[in-house]
Design a protein around this nucleic acid. Sequence first.
DNA 1: AAATTACGTCAATAGTACTGACATAATTCC
DNA 2: GGAATTATGTCAGTACTATTGACGTAATTT
Lengths: 177, 177
Amino acid sequence: MTDQSNAAGKPIRTAITDEDGIDFAIIELLFFAYRDFTSDPDQILADYGFGRAHHRVLHFVNRRPGLTVAELLDVLKITKQSLARVLKQLIDTDHIVQLQGPRDRRQRELYPTAKGRALALALARPQSRRIHAALEDSGAADRASIERFLEAMVNPELRAQIDIVPAKISGKSHGDH
Amino acid sequence: MTDQSNAAGKPIRTAITDEDGIDFAIIELLFFAYRDFTSDPDQILADYGFGRAHHRVLHFVNRRPGLTVAELLDVLKITKQSLARVLKQLIDTDHIVQLQGPRDRRQRELYPTAKGRALALALARPQSRRIHAALEDSGAADRASIERFLEAMVNPELRAQIDIVPAKISGKSHGDH
DNA sequence: AAATTACGTCAATAGTACTGACATAATTCC
DNA sequence: GGAATTATGTCAGTACTATTGACGTAATTT
């Protein structure tokens, strides 16, 4: 069972390289970088009995206070049912509160509490430290080009989600359909 | 239940910003970039009934043909049991073959088949296309600095894993403790 | 011969995600 | 005012990826 006769297909002994112009170097770097990038907050979350899903919800509720459940689902690209458990836990543990929408009372606007804001900051801190260190190590002033690269990696039709953030409401105003 | 009296903690209505020097912009960009980066292969994998775990195994077996199960576990940072099912499926479907280790016959060296190599390439292609497009959009010649940044994001003690790859065996030879 | 190592496997569990269905309340449409 | 639509919540069932712990087997090392 451990060695295959020949019906199975012969082993290829050469490493896959940048044949066909495939950029394996950066593909692999993204994997390693993201793996370690998320490992920082994962350790903190474990103390709370939370997972990565809680982190993402907490992050976006802090970034866009007052967003509705529907908007959050759209950003996270998960389903209502997946969000339900996570959101309920965050509300039960007093990290997030719901308020009735002012215009539409069916809507639940989500806001962080002081506790939720503190946790979001605690989770972001080691990540930010890692980013700063990496920016310095990689030769200083490239920050803008790193940002442009990452932004360009996002699906164009979803880039609007990025522009919603507070710091970036410059005079962009693209599209209103 | 939907509106909180006051025992719960008051809602914070201001968005979290780069207070405390936290780099939320890049934190968020990394989330969006990685989300969309992995969405490409995810769609292909679904056709095979595979998940992201299969992709990772397939990738590294193609990148380092002949690696052992133990080495693969170390790179992926998962447990033997998590790998077991995934690896078995890839072997059963003829994407990967095991060979007895030449020196140590207890070891199983993992190799891709032609089928496994083809799938690895198919999965990498859209990712590579996205990377190239992003590199161009973000202003050309920054490729080296992007690589340096991503590499610097990886935990220093784990950077050795990156250097194992074929294309990079230059004269580095750091450490042989 | 005994201990260790590499691997495989079984059992039980958890976290995150999914689809589909249904309920409730609020808004909008007619 | 009644009907359709919308926003949200919830229940049931399922799947994938991951976990820990225990045990077995074969091969190597001591």
